[in-house]
Design a protein around this nucleic acid. Structure first.
Lengths: 221, 221
DNA sequence: GGAATAGTTCAGCGCAGAATGAACTATAAA
DNA sequence: TTTATAGTTCATTCTGCGCTGAACTATTCC
């Protein structure tokens, strides 16, 4: 028994696997490549780790076409992850220095915008009554549909996709939700295409360009 | 945050450290040399591992003469260890032999009662509407307050403690929750004091005395 | 059909981190 | 005082396991 416990602990104790579990904590199903982006490792390596987690019965897969969606096999896994996170020492009074780190300020969460900028953008959309919160999703108003249309984003098309259309994703730095789902992804893509934002290498941090600064303050404040 | 979680998981994920935590799960304080024997490794190596667990705040030491007694620094650590154990694959066709092992039947989890007896006792309390489940805690009803009072347990005093009052701790053999927290600890202590239960040496198993059999079946069925 | 995308498997490399041995401090007994 | 026990620290060795690159299968799209 203690042997079993040791191997279970070792299983969770790898940085990559821990990050996978941490990512899955939002309850959504992720494909292998999404996870590879999220935990920032190669596809092969991730595949190996997923295999171990599957074999141990922590995760389950659902195969859909050429995609494989990974989730927790049962809620107990999420509870255990949370109880582990609960052991972390209480955050030592976030310093102004670390509060200004780019990664806290403006970053991507999988394929949409997160961090302070992501949250404030989302809240601006709500204030302008372009979207409204509904449980774990956002609902786009008629006014919002037009607005996104003018941005070159076709909400109807996005709604057809399998994945969530306009999810509310809880931000771990801001502790407030930001716009996710296919709509959030499309919005980020648009802002990257228009060179309002630029991805930084080897990190999820995102840079706001001068042009972006102008456009964002115009559209969202 | 994910980094912190990863390092916490890695901390627990070493075989020796996992065994240390597993050993300490009985709530007793162990000296370094006792642990070295228990987890079967050298003294120096163990000392190194204990140092890491201490630095991470999972364990605390009390120095008495030339001995150093190690324990969990707080009950949450024990809960997390149990929840990890709960992830172990369902035992393949539990033989009648292993199902009857004392350790499965009646044991302590850190400082409260677990195993089949612990779970059934908890479920009896729920049936009698003395407590009700609420997320990861139990709520004690007015009737329950009186009941615990008659047992000589002062719920109000227990509520003042820093630690959780009536936690629901998931049992790794029964896969159902049992009563933990300061209330669970007080109840176990009471049953030990009244000689309904007796701790067995060098194990987490607990013996139900004849007197205990009588009282338990009276109170809980 | 061919090309692109999604994902896995396998062999070999590399390194973080665990284990070891020796030296050290400190308490307790004789 | 000397000896034994309890425990830690440090420098060094060693090894398990994660990571990479290459090759592979499977599905979708054109």
């Amino acid at each position: 028994m203690e042997k079993d416990f040791g191997s279970m602990a070792a299983l969770i104790g790898d940085p990559v696997r821990a990050n996978i579990l941490w990512t899955l904590l939002d309850g959504r199903a992720y494909t292998a490549s999404e996870l590879a982006i999220g935990v920032d490792t190669s596809a092969q390596n991730l595949s190996m780790h997923l295999g171990k987690l599957i074999k141990a019965g922590l995760l389950s897969v659902e195969i859909q076409g050429r995609h494989r969606y990974y989730t927790f096999s049962r809620p107990e896994v999420a509870y255990a992850v949370e109880s582990l996170a609960g052991l972390l020492p209480a955050r030592p009074a976030t310093t102004t220095a670390s509060a200004d780190l780019p990664i806290r300020n403006c970053r991507t969460c999988y394929d949409h915008l997160a961090g302070r900028v992501g949250v404030e953008l989302t809240e601006s959309l709500v204030r302008q009554k372009l979207i409204t919160r509904s449980a774990n999703d956002f609902v786009v108003s008629k006014k919002g549909n037009r607005w996104f249309g003018q941005m070159g984003i076709d909400c109807e098309a996005l709604r057809q996709q399998r994945r969530g259309f306009a999810r509310a994703c809880l931000d771990w730095t801001e502790r407030r939700p930001h716009l996710a789902g296919s709509l959030g992804a499309a919005l980020l893509q648009k802002m990257l295409d228009e060179h309002w934002l630029r991805r930084m290498a080897n990190t999820r941090a995102v840079l706001v360009t001068p042009k972006g600064q102008k456009m964002l303050s115009e559209l969202f404040r």
